[in-house]
Design a protein around this nucleic acid. Structure first.
Lengths: 344, 344
DNA sequence: GAAGGCCGTGAAACCGGTTACATCATAGGC
DNA sequence: GCCTATGATGTAACCGGTTTCACGGCCTTC
């Protein structure tokens, strides 16, 4: 059996209450007593039992992160941001990932009861009912990239629509007319917003052009498959805007493999700006989402909610995105000049 | 205040003990009573307080994962594997990442006391003292990719040396003679083993050639910087073997950017086979590490250790790697034939 | 010199469960 | 018809801490 507070109390010839106070830096303990306790604790190698501590103090110093099955660098960046912020607040992270469906999500949410002080839920698929049914009312909660929330929970979102519009505008500015979108999975909130941004921008900037949509699921492989479809098309679009970088990278690979030059024959753009995006060939033009910052902000928001103790404002915060121009769409200026030359 | 077991007991007109027994499926409870309790619990929306439960039952159903600051897809794959296995055992994951130095690692280890049933420690830098000092003796622990362990902890390792030897053999087989290594950070266990494998294989296969080592830190950026150094070299090696895929990708980018063709002018190989490795251009020839499987195995090993209750065998298990040949080194057969043609 | 206030400490309640042990009712054996 | 075995349920101790409240000693104050 590990050494408990009782052992320390015995060794220091004081009561457990005094040990508790001394080790928690209460002011009402003599310097001398405190030193005695500290010495006894050090000698016995005492480490407080966090489980017991959180039961009586009603704070676990843990927050739960409930995530969907995220792929690749987006996942690691997000967690890194959350972890960094949590660490700075002395909080621990109970991670529950890989939730494909509402049922799994519900189970994960329930299992958090009594383990965490707050909840960070990223649920691009989840609907309100599942959340309301399975999150303890009193538990501070922040939703990330969810369509729900606002009335009941604080929400942090990426400006998906704005980012997509900016990208389409950029592509149009480079002379593209036939711009297709490689969209994310149907039910996904981010995917939906990015698609809507694309469609809206297209309708505004190129009213004559009909939107063209390929479906993917955010994975490299689905990007690759979409690329294969593009390869076999007789009437290929001039630019393809993928709803995330992973798909863009998979897509570029399929095209390059088939001998179709990117960006010379077809431009490819992504979304997210994952760290690797600048190191693929051609370097990816994309919409930057400060992923780690998203994680940090979400956690900070949650910490606020925890301190407010339910007085939460239930704010909706939208994270700005920014266009990052690299080379996967860049030759198009040349195209523009060619076109204008042709017109002369 | 949330609803507790007492509320359920009151509502079901039984004692708390009976509620506990009924909900935990004890056999010595009448069908009828059990149904009453279940009904009351459902009506009140009772969810057991896991913290309290683990305090009295002395099982937290949580395991702690203590990781260094991992980059990119390796991290997400590993966590995915661990998470998947944990879920299948009904275990939760307390994640603590981003540990740069021994001090942070120690703090993280201590904070796990009373929170977890076992520990998964990935510590390519950690030395034995830090571990022994900060892990509760009784706490089942599995080390991943650590130089330490064996006597006191179970260890799971990747066959770094064997993988590196295989890769060098492959490169030599493709006709390369001047093979440089882009190594990982100095203190890192994996980096050291991979470097040793490279050096040993080189000494055996090409006794005349002197090993040439560039240093990186496993990040894309350090790979890029190494690539820049290669670009400016007058006497460039014919192949570069990066200690991980991230660096290989960064390196390829620097070379391509400078107009040096990969693999035509220089071959580049990686290590790990992260998911994206097959989708970069040129697709990366690398040493496959089943990363998710590594995580799963580590967790399974830990579960065994927990059940054995300290009777642990303290085994050392080594995970096989396998060569994955793609195109980033592949043109070399052509080189070989060119060379032989030149000789005629 | 006695009363009052303050301060350090200890005893015990409590957090929300689990579980060993006691109790009670019922059924079965004689 | 009485005694005992059995099985369902209740009581209370316990897990390892925190925290309220009571207590006793010392210093101040008049």
């Amino acid at each position: 059996m590990a050494v408990t507070i009782k052992d320390v109390a015995k060794a220091a010839h004081v009561s457990v209450a005094t040990v508790s106070r001394a080790l928690n830096g209460s002011d009402s303990v003599t310097e001398k007593t405190s030193a005695q306790v500290a010495a006894a604790a050090a000698k016995l190698g005492y480490v407080p039992h966090e489980g017991a501590r959180s039961l009586s103090s009603r704070r676990t110093r843990c927050i739960g992160a409930v995530l969907p099955d995220l792929h690749g660098e987006f996942f690691s960046e997000l967690i890194r941001g959350v972890d960094r912020a949590a660490r700075s607040h002395g909080l621990h992270l109970l991670l529950s990932s890989s939730h494909g469906d509402a049922h799994e999500l519900a189970a994960a949410l329930l299992a958090m009861r009594g383990r965490v002080d707050g909840l960070l839920v990223m649920s691009p698929y989840a609907d309100r009912k599942v959340l309301e049914k399975n999150i303890q009312l009193a538990l501070p909660t922040v939703l990330v990239n969810s369509g729900e929330g606002g009335e009941r929970y604080s929400v942090l979102r990426v400006d998906n629509h704005g980012g997509a519009v900016t990208m389409v505008r950029h592509l149009v500015g480079r002379g593209h007319r036939r711009i297709a979108m490689l969209a994310g999975p149907e039910g996904n909130f981010d995917a939906r917003e990015r698609l809507a941004g694309y469609a809206d921008a297209l309708a505004e900037l190129l009213p004559g052009e009909r939107p063209q949509v390929l479906r993917g699921d955010f994975s490299e492989e689905s990007g690759y498959k979409a690329g294969r479809r593009l390869v076999s098309m007789s009437d290929r679009p001039g630019a393809i805007f993928a709803a995330n970088d992973m798909m863009a990278i998979g897509c570029i690979f399929a095209l390059t493999e088939a001998g179709i030059a990117v960006p010379d024959e077809i431009a490819v753009a992504g979304f997210d700006d994952i760290p690797i995006a600048r190191y693929v060939s051609p370097a990816l033009t994309t919409v930057r989402v400060r992923i780690a910052e998203l994680g940090e902000l979400a956690l900070e928001r949650l910490v606020l909610a925890i301190h407010e103790g339910g007085q939460d404002r239930h704010s909706i915060q939208k994270l700005r995105t920014e266009l990052v121009v690299r080379s996967s769409c860049s030759r198009q200026q040349a195209v523009v000049s060619l076109v204008s030359r042709g017109k002369r």
